[in-house]
């Protein structure tokens, strides 16, 4: 079917026609466009946020599933410093079981030095898993400490002898009471380091008394004078 002449006329007449829309129509279009575009942005934002939340949840679930494995690994890591710490203390304290004297140059010369040394020994003993007997012995040593300090402050030789005896006793107790091979090894290493310290002491012992030693002796002498004056009162 084709168009008749009349239909062509209608078409051409109507094609020329223009109807002006109302003035507010553009404002309405603009408002609708802004409305349509805003939700899209927020929708995108929601998408991103939800994706991030899902990722977080997945990560947490993954961590939860592998959590037990992570804890065991942490235990392994924590056990390492426990093995190393006694060795550090060994080298710093340089305790000699046989040596007659320990060089005072390496340690601060205060009245509480002895007490500190013993405390460090207690820590060493604790780290090698000492049993209750050893703990009790250490407690008794600590309780009797003030008296020893007073008496040992008089002579350095006596002080060092006592120290070495205590250390030897502690080591023996630790050796007896420990069953763990690793701990035994640690104790053996401690003994070895003590032997080294002994050798060092032998060298240092031959040195002449320095200015610091003289000061220390003076302090001890003064302390004894004060003590003698106070105790009778």
């Amino acid at each position: 079917m084709s168009l008749s002449q009349s239909e062509y006329n209608i078409k051409s007449t109507l094609e020329k026609r223009e109807i002006a829309p109302s003035k507010t129509l553009w404002d309405n279009i603009q408002l609708e466009l802004e409305k349509e575009q805003k939700p899209k942005k927020s929708y995108l934002w929601y998408k991103v946020a939800s994706a991030a939340a899902v990722l977080c949840i997945v990560f947490l679930i993954y961590r939860g599933l592998t959590g037990t494995r992570a804890i065991t690994e942490q235990f392994v890591i924590q056990s390492q410093p426990a093995e190393i710490t006694p060795m550090k203390i060994e080298t710093q304290t340089i305790l000699n079981p046989i040596a007659v004297q320990i060089p005072e140059v390496k340690e601060p010369k205060t009245i509480s030095t002895k007490q500190n040394r013993i405390k460090t020994k207690v820590e060493v003993a604790e780290t090698v898993n000492q049993n209750d007997i050893a703990q009790n012995e250490m407690n008794t040593i600590l309780e009797t400490q003030p008296k020893e300090i007073i008496s040992e402050a008089i002579t350095a030789e006596e002080q060092n002898v006592l120290l070495t005896q205590e250390v030897n006793a502690l080591l023996e107790i630790a050796m007896k009471n420990t069953t763990d091979t690793e701990q035994k090894k640690a104790l053996l290493r401690l003994e070895a380091s003590l032997l080294l310290a002994e050798a060092e002491d032998d060298i240092l012992f031959e040195k002449p008394k320095g200015f610091e030693d003289k000061i220390w002796e003076a302090i001890v002498a003064n302390f004894n004078d004060i003590k003698n004056n106070i105790i009778p009162n």
């Binding site: 079917m1 002449q5 009349s6 239909e7 006329n9 007449t13 109507l14 026609r17």
Partner: peptide, 16 residues
């Protein structure tokens, strides 16, 4: 094709 009496019609208002 229907006979159309619209050959002479040129007024858009009437057509619409």
């Amino acid at each position: 094709i229907a006979d159309n009496p619209m050959d002479e019609v040129k007024d858009t208002t009437h057509i619409q």
